[in-house]
Simulated assay, not measured.
Amino acid sequence: MMHPEGYDEKTVADPQAWVGRVEEHDGALTPNLAGMMGATLSHAAAPAHDLRIGAPLPPLWHWIAFPEFVPLSELGSDGHPALGRFLPPLPYPRRMWAGGKLEWTGALEVGETLHRRSEILAVTEKQGSTGSMYFVRVGHDLHGKNGSIREEQDIVYLDMPEEFRPPRAIPAPDTPDFREVVPMNEARLFRFSAVTFNAHRIHYDMPYAREVEKYPALIVHGPMQACLLMEAACRHTGQTPKRFRFKGVHPMFHTEDTALVGQMDAAAPAVDLFSVAATSNHQCMQARMEWSA
């Protein structure tokens, strides 16, 4: 089995030894960085945010407030920071953000100093249709002056495939309450990689994506899909989130535009959300936003 660079069987033999590892960082979403994010997510129906210091921080934009300042010499061959710093060096070379859940209390602001405490909560091995995989759950507690976010992030580690074997395609809802299409292309992917300081090569390096990870095209970032769905949910409901959860169910490729689809939950103050490959009409991400206390 292929292992991450620099780690042997003994090093990765006890994944549970990484549970409880903690790191802390301070960060901020400056107006300039917020402007870059707004331009990256822009499309015909996108809102115009107030991005001045003290303005409300758009939901999920805290993700770009804590870039990892990792030297180029410490990146792995996939462009990710080399394993073994905070995340465990598990014996699978592919890793990606599989999903997560968040809960907001109070409000955060553009420009304010944010403090984030991160802890590895669990390392779990599972069997899937493509074989064994590991899920690493990371908890983040983020605080500002008058608000906080509790977040759990699921990261999946997979072996490198010999060929692309897509998961089962789940059709998009037939009668959504809203559906809007966001043009997708290499420029949007490049901008999101830049604003998040994410050098994962599946988002910008076509030869790597095809020849090494066996994807047919570049991958649209999961966090970008989640941000686009969040903005659509807030716009169509007129609400701000109390809770949000999401998970990827199929790769989204840059060769198709992205449809943002929503269905209101008649039994709860919530909306179910789906990012959909606009031409193939199958789900790529499932999400749900709730806004009651």
Rank of each mutant, 00 (worst) to 15 (best):
R137V: 15
S132W: 05
Y157E: 01
G106Y: 12
K126P: 10
E68N: 02
V156H: 08
A107M: 14
A172Q: 04
I120P: 03
F178K: 07
G111K: 06
M96T: 04
E180D: 10
Q127A: 12
R117V: 12
T130H: 14
P81R: 06
E74M: 15
W61S: 05
I149E: 06
I120Y: 02
I120L: 14
A98S: 10
D174R: 15
R137G: 03
L121Q: 13
A169Q: 09
K126Y: 08
T124Y: 00
T113V: 14
F69C: 07
I120Q: 01
R116Q: 14
E151D: 13
E109Q: 15
G54Q: 11
R85E: 14
Y134D: 01
L102G: 01
P89C: 05
L87R: 11
L108H: 00
P173G: 03
L114A: 08
H115D: 02
E162W: 00
V138E: 14
H140L: 10
E74H: 15
P171Y: 11
V136M: 08
I149P: 01
T175E: 08
T105P: 01
P173T: 07
G111T: 00
G84R: 10
M96C: 01
S132G: 07
R179F: 00
G79I: 08
G139E: 15
V138G: 06
I155E: 05
G147V: 07
P59Y: 12
Y157P: 06
L87M: 13
R116W: 04
Q127I: 10
H80D: 06
A122W: 03
R165P: 03
H140V: 11
Q127S: 12
P91V: 00
L51E: 01
A82R: 15
V138M: 12
K101R: 15
R150H: 14
Y157T: 03
I53G: 00
T113G: 12
M160F: 02
P89N: 08
Q127V: 13
G54S: 08
M133C: 07
P58N: 06
L158G: 04
Y92I: 04
F178N: 02
H143V: 12
D174W: 02
F86Y: 03
P58L: 02
A122Q: 05
I64Y: 06
L72Q: 15
H115Q: 14
P71G: 08
P161S: 05
G147H: 01
H143R: 13
E103W: 02
L60D: 05
I53Y: 09
V123K: 03
A169K: 15
S77T: 15
R165Y: 04
E68T: 09
E180K: 07
D154C: 09
V182Q: 09
G111D: 02
M160K: 14
I155C: 03
P71E: 03
A98V: 07
A122L: 00
E151G: 09
P88I: 01
L90D: 11
G144A: 02
M96Q: 01
R116F: 06
E152P: 07
P183H: 11
W97G: 04
L83S: 08
G84C: 09
D174E: 15
R117G: 10
Y92N: 10
L142Q: 06
I149L: 10
P81T: 05
L90T: 07
G76L: 12
